[in-house]
Amino acid sequence: MIETNDLSKQFNNNFWAVQGVTLNVQPGQILALLGQNGAGKTTTVRMLTALLAPTRGSARVAGFDVTKNPKEIRMNVGVLTEQHGLYLRMSGDEYLDYFGKIYGLDAQARAVRSKYLLDYFGLGEAARRRSGEYSKGMKQKLALARSLMHNPSVLLLDEPTSAMDPESSRLVRDEIARLRSSQRTIIICTHNLAEAEALADHIAIIYRGKILLNGALDELKQRVLGPVEYEARFADAFDTSGLSLPAGAEVASRSETSLKFRIEAPQVVNPGLVRALASMNAPLISFHEVPRKLEQVYLKTMAEAQGLAYAA
């Protein structure tokens, strides 16, 4: 579990890198921390791994206080850093063995765990090669394997799939999803919004050290983009001017062959709306929710934060 309250960090030059961050991530949940470069994501993660002491506020990770129990936190947290941080003259299996030792695993546990992770990430055959000879994606996978070596209950992953090919990215995403199902608490810092959308239960957008938005994805879409939109598509040009809309529905846009509605409570409004369209003998070929992406939420939030106009 990760709980932070008013977590803030000021550096010596009086610059507030993080200000008033309050988060709550439960076991089995994934939080995606999104933001521009320099927004404060890495500083937040470093405070959660007890690498940086908060200037203000508090944080508990895996049940331990970041200021009082830094060693316990490091024992229970797996960190994938922004840079892979591999020792390039060590082979894959040596590297995992080294970190296994640091985390206090005995020789047998290290051997079993490193073989499992290397095989899982498809690095089994390259295990004895120096990591300097690995491709970018392989390096990233080895770094991820390192963060999992001691089977941590909390994972803090900075750009877990950067530089990976699509197959490897998928593999890593699957592994992260599997870790969630084993009740681990996970924070992902990423610029890959599709990945965040696919994996995260909660999203937090950070800008200049402050959390602008924090919540479940659907809730954020509703909050930022407004009510859900539905689209009716017609086989031919169809005049919808005579359509009487049920209460709770309003037209968002219309064309000759489609009509978009903004609907507050779809479960109540939609049956009546479909019935109204049918009564007009509309040549309806589909009636569906207009997909809204996290990207729209993110871009609109960032545009508003910077005082810019958001172009959907």
């Binding site: 791994t49 490091r74 922004e82 941080g85 591999l86 640091i102 770094a143």
Partner: peptide
């Protein structure tokens, strides 16, 4: 500079 320090610093070593 090589970015290898952070994994070590994130470890439970004193």
């Amino acid at each position: 500079e090589r970015g290898t320090i952070e994994p070590i610093l994130s470890s439970p070593l004193d």
